[in-house]
């Protein structure tokens, strides 16, 4: 069980995380949603100890440290692989450092996505790089797989494939925390939606509860975020009014 209690992180005067309380159990697939700068990436980095924070983050009651860090993997849109290494080089590196490395899964995913094994990562396309980043995170053998916008730049078919593959290969106790803006795409993939706004958790619902209420994930996010559907039309009307006013004065 991953538990965050009162986690706060500030960059200067800006609060990136504001007293975040969150519990994620084994086997959950959590969608982490929020606008740009809401704190999704910072939340993941705090879990991985990549940024300092105040509060408590524990995994099965133990603080996250070198002792249990192996139980987390991380796929980021910034990419955390070695650009000048081949996939086989990565396999060797991960195998040496992570005792839980899943070689069969790595090979299977590399084959499925037809990624070139003999080329260095810096010669991959953006989509291939994203795929490889996600493959590493899935093959590390972690219990908690954190994915931060892993498919930014991938085409829709590719993303669709990935969700299907993920659902197919994940074992019951593997947990995924997925940060993305692609709400409609992941609605059938995630089991729970956590909304973050200005560093604070503003919504946390299971997808089954949403379904019971007959509310879509998109509707839930818009409602929780206080999205005003007529915002654009009002702005356009105002703009049109100003332009016609200017013409009138001419």
């Amino acid at each position: 069980m991953l538990e965050l209690k009162n986690v706060t992180k500030s960059y200067g005067w800006t609060k990136a995380l504001d007293k975040v309380d969150l519990t994620v159990g084994p086997g959950e697939i959590v969608g982490l949603f929020g606008e740009n700068g809401a704190g999704k990436t910072t939340l993941m980095k705090a879990i991985l100890n990549l940024v300092g924070y105040s509060g408590q983050i524990t995994l099965d009651g133990e603080p996250v440290s070198r002792k249990n860090i192996e139980r987390f993997s991380f796929a980021t849109c910034e990419h955390s692989f070695f650009p000048t290494l081949t996939p086989d080089g990565h396999r060797d590196f991960y195998r040496n450092h992570f005792s839980t490395w899943r070689d069969k899964r790595f090979t299977a995913l590399m084959d499925f996505f037809k990624l070139p094994k003999l080329r260095c990562l810096n010669s991959y396309s953006t989509g291939q790089k994203n795929q490889f980043e996600a493959i590493l995170a899935l093959s590390q053998g972690a219990d908690y797989i954190l994915m931060d916008e892993p498919f930014a730049g991938n085409d829709v078919f590719n993303r669709e494939d990935f969700y299907k593959v993920l659902l197919g290969i994940l074992e019951p106790d593997e947990t995924v925390i997925l940060s993305t803006h692609l709400l409609e795409e992941v609605e059938n993939f995630v089991s729970r939606a956590v909304l973050i706004k200005k560093g604070a958790i503003v919504g946390d619902e299971s997808i089954s509860d949403l379904e019971d209420r007959g509310e879509s994930l998109m509707a839930f996010v818009k409602r929780t975020y206080g999205y005003q559907p007529d915002r654009v039309s009002r702005a356009l009307d105002r703009l049109a009014g100003e332009e016609s006013g200017e013409e009138g004065t001419k």
Binding site: E70, H79, S80
Partner: peptide, 12 residues
């Protein structure tokens, strides 16, 4: 070219 430091900093 990438943020490999994220990986290095979370190695056991």
């Amino acid at each position: 070219g990438a943020r490999t430091d994220y990986l290095m900093r979370r190695l056991p």
